[in-house]
Design a protein around this nucleic acid. Structure first.
Lengths: 107, 107
DNA sequence: CAGTATCCAGACCGATACTG
DNA sequence: CAGTATCGGTCTGGATACTG
């Protein structure tokens, strides 16, 4: 049975965003890097253990969903849920913020 | 001399949001609880040590600014910078998201 | 290839006490 | 009242090895 959560945002933010690699994982999925193997290869320093911890957590929070393809060798893909996409877009918006407030001050 | 930082957003999010109490502090300042003493009184479990760690960090990231009033007893107030307000609004926006995607599904 | 188990060094928080 | 110093328990990430 699936286990999901809908806690307070404050907790979710602390729990999800606070964890190292979470944002990188979301970012990768957003860019089409959907398979665990590819993620580990792409993000230097990320190990399978930590990656799976993040993927599990992101799934629990309904930010990502997991799809298993019954093939050999096994293939698994993670994708953003509708909520996940909205969430990711907001994170992206913070990037814009930075540009607006800081980068313009560098000559 | 003031020390500030303008790192990548990803790092900032991990660093700021990941720290326990950061969001609570931002929230309090937003609600007009601007003095350290008041914050400690309001947020149960928050100690002066941790609070000052957060305040320093938020100041370094230019989310908060510190104002000292040369009085006796000493008075200090923290306020959101322009960037801080924008940042806080984004946090709020994630709150809305959650309501839109999950709460409506409960009956 | 996907995911789990174990071990370990380092970071962090909370409690407490103290200085300006 | 604002802020710092210290100590101890806990959590977590990184390295590694292993299972399905």
């Amino acid at each position: 049975m699936e286990k999901t959560e809908t806690p307070s945002v404050k907790r979710m933010m602390e729990d999800v965003v606070g964890c190292k690699w979470s944002l990188s994982v979301i970012d990768m999925v957003q860019r089409g890097v959907n398979r665990p193997g590819a993620m580990v290869r792409e993000e230097d320093g990320l190990t399978t253990k930590v990656l799976n911890q993040r993927l599990s957590k992101l799934k629990r929070y309904r930010i990502l969903e997991r799809t298993v393809y019954p093939e050999v060798p096994p293939r698994v893909e993670y994708h953003l849920t509708e909520f996940g996409e909205a969430f990711a877009q907001i994170i992206t918006r913070i990037n814009d913020l930075q540009g607006r407030y800081f980068d313009e001050s560098r000559t």
